[in-house]
Each structure stands twice: as C-alpha cells, then as structure tokens.
Amino acid sequence: MINNFYFSFPTKYIFGINTISQIENELSDKSITRLCVLAGKYSAEKLGILKIIETICHKQNINYYEYKIIDGKASRENIEYINDFLLNKKINFIIAVGGGTIIDIAKTIKSEFNNIEFGVVLTHPASSSESNNSYVYYDNIKNKKIAKRSMNAYPSFSICDPTYMETLTKKQMYSSFSDVFSHLLEQFFAIELTFIDDMIIACLQRVVNLFELYQKKLFTINEQMEYMLLTSMALSYIFSNGRTMDWVAHQVEHSLSEYSIGTHGENLAIIMPAWVSFSQNNQYYSKKLEYLSSKINHNNSKKISGLFFIQSFYSSISENCRLSSMLKNNFILDKYLGTLFDTPLLGRVNVINLEQFSFFFNSLI
C-alpha cells in the first residue's frame, strides 16, 4: 500500500555540459539588482564559474558580490554571519556554487532568515540538495546537525554540469558514493513493498557499477553524466513519498558530527551497514533483504545475500569498520546519547529505545 502524499518539484533542473550559459536566461527573467555567489574556497574559481557569473551580471547591470565559505561548515553561527552580509549588501538573489553544504546554507537563509531566492550550480553531487526541499545545518547550541524540509527551500534553478566533477578528490568521490548509496538504502528499508523498491535496487546496483568504474579509472564523461543524474534522483523524495522509513543511520551520523573527524559519507560507510546488520531480524528489514537478494541474484550463478551485497559495497569504500578511528578526544558517550535521544525512541520501522541503541552503538566502536 502507498500512503497519501503531496509532492511538488518547482525547481528548474538544467542538466548537461556547458549548461551554465543558461544562467543568463534565468537571471533575465527575474528583477535582480544585487546578486551574491556563495562558494567554497577553490573549485568555483578554478572551474571558471565565478568569472562566468560575474560577466553575466555585468552584462545585465546586476551588482555582483561573492562570499566564500572558508571552513566549509553550514553552522547556524556561520549562516547568521552570511545573512548579515547579505542584508548589509541588500542582496536579492543568491547563486550557491558547490555541493550540499553550500546549497544548504542558501536554503537555510531562504527558509529561516530573509527569504532570498536562490539558484544552484552543482559541482559536488552527493546530497541531492540541488533537487529537493530538505536542508541540514549544524546547531551550535544542540551540538548536532538539524535536518529540515520546507517548501520554501527549493532552488529556483539548478545547473548540473557533470564536467564540474573533475575537481573532486578521491576522498570526496568516495564520500559521495557512500552518501548516495545510503540515501537509497534508507528509502529502500520502508515498511511498504512496491514497484519503487525495484527502482531503488536498480539504482543501488548502478551505483556499485559506477564505483567500480571509478576505481578502475574508467569514469568517463558518460559515467559522470549518469552519476550526477542518479545522485539528483536518489534523494529527490520521489522514492520516499507515501512510504514509512527509519532514517536512523542519518540521525546517528548527524548527532555524531561534533565528535567525528570523518566526513558525512565516511561516517555513513561505517554506520549504515552496521545498522542494516543490527536490524536484519526486524520483520520489515528481513523481508526487504530477502527481496534484494532475489533481485540481485536473478541472473547470477554466484548467489549472495542482500546483506552481503550491502556490506561488500561499503567495505570497498572504507577499510574502517569501527567508529573509534574517527572519534575525537572530546567524545563522551553519555553526552552523545543525550544529544541523539531528544525523544524516547528512534526509528519508525525498527523502533529502538536507549538501551537497545547503546548495544548497537557499542558494536560500532
């Protein structure tokens, strides 16, 4: 059964090589007088994106500004500073150039501060932030990442040129593959079993194939195009609408960010397979693992279990199977548990209490 749901996708998704030229048309349709580009330290400038946007702005008599996020953090404190800058400069349009962190800063500003419209130029595919209405920021008071959704958080447009992936390091790409695979798995392990699960399994298998090609240095422009499109689809919420799922692995990681030196993807590469293994006897997880096994073994003489398929992928991404190698010296288990458990229970499919989670978490460290 599929539950009732409401879904809207107002973002204009502009995909392909050299599609950044379309920004000129997108800006000309709006009454923009003062534009600010939010970007990281290097990639936007190295790829020539900043110069292209600046040239377009001058052509259209738009005042052009830049704000570079040096520490790469979407903390509430950082966002407040950026918002003050935007207000001071009377900015009325933002272009976020980068990946999830940069885009989420623009989303938070639009949703929770002063409603400045924004567009996206994607350079780091992973989070699907360019194609959904969710955003994550770090709460300095609660000491954890806060994930939210808002209809006000959709980008006006998203420029998705796969050639911009060329600046990404091996570490960034491995983290991206882990993040995308985890997004798909979180949505796969829903209570409901529908045709959507077949679509997710096909995407999971293709992520594995693309990662193998990346490892072999056979990740050509064709694979880059396919991967960028797949990442945008993975968490566009088309797979999760009308379905009941946990998202526990992401909750665990979000509360861990204060205490870990790992990236979001690196942490998930340890947490996600461990959570699935821990949950394998849950009636819904068990049913989905059996279904996954039946699908991946359909034309395969060498039979493997659904759990082994998942664990094998993550072990190819990360040699670490314990969080202890990622934890900072400031990690205190009781403090972490207090941050994570702001409600008595975690999960909606495999529902666990604090005692059950402590058993699970000890297996991670």
Rank of each mutant, 00 (worst) to 15 (best):
N297Q: 09
N297K: 08
L218I: 08
Y314P: 02
N88E: 14
S301K: 14
G242Y: 05
S324Q: 15
E45L: 11
S255H: 03
L323D: 01
A126D: 02
K216Q: 15
E258N: 00
L184N: 01
R348T: 05
Q172I: 06
A126I: 05
A147Y: 00
N241P: 02
G265D: 02
I70H: 10
I221M: 11
S178G: 09
A74M: 07
Y284G: 03
F118W: 04
P273N: 06
S178H: 02
E223S: 13
S305A: 10
Y291R: 03
I141Y: 07
K142Y: 06
F308D: 13
L289S: 02
G99S: 08
Q251R: 09
S31D: 15
L256G: 02
N300H: 14
F177D: 02
F219I: 11
F93V: 07
K288T: 09
T263L: 03
V208G: 01
K302E: 05
E24S: 15
G72P: 11
Q172W: 09
D139F: 08
L47C: 11
L346A: 04
I62Y: 01
D104W: 06
T263F: 04
T343A: 13
K12W: 09
G16D: 07
G98C: 03
P125W: 07
N61S: 14
Q283C: 13
L307C: 14
C203Q: 06
G242T: 00
N320M: 12
I95W: 05
K295V: 02
N114Q: 13
G72W: 06
S325P: 11
Y164W: 01
Y154S: 11
S150R: 09
G242A: 03
I352R: 00
K90C: 03
N83A: 11
I52S: 10
N61L: 11
L345V: 03
L345G: 03
E186N: 06
L354E: 13
A202K: 06
V97W: 00
N140G: 12
I304F: 13
V136F: 10
Q356M: 05
G347S: 01
V351Y: 07
N4S: 14
L292H: 03
I332G: 10
Q224W: 01
E166N: 14
G265T: 08
L47A: 09
A190K: 04
E77V: 12
T231C: 12
A39T: 11
F211H: 07
V349M: 08
F157C: 00
Q283N: 12
G16Q: 04
N115W: 04
Y81R: 15
Q311I: 02
F278I: 00
Y174H: 08
Q187Y: 01
K302M: 08
A202V: 09
K51T: 07
I271Y: 00
S28I: 13
T244S: 09
Q224S: 11
Q60L: 15
L218A: 15
S279R: 02
A126K: 05
K217E: 15
I271W: 00
A74H: 02
I82M: 10
L340D: 10
S28A: 14
I141M: 12
M272S: 06
Q215W: 09
G265M: 00
E355N: 11
N282D: 13
N299A: 13
V207E: 06
C36F: 10
F357E: 00
F113S: 10
S260G: 04
T167G: 07
S255A: 13
M228I: 13
M225Q: 08
C321H: 14
A190D: 05
K287Y: 04
I201E: 00
G16M: 04
I53V: 12
S131Y: 08
T55A: 15
Y42R: 08
N209G: 07
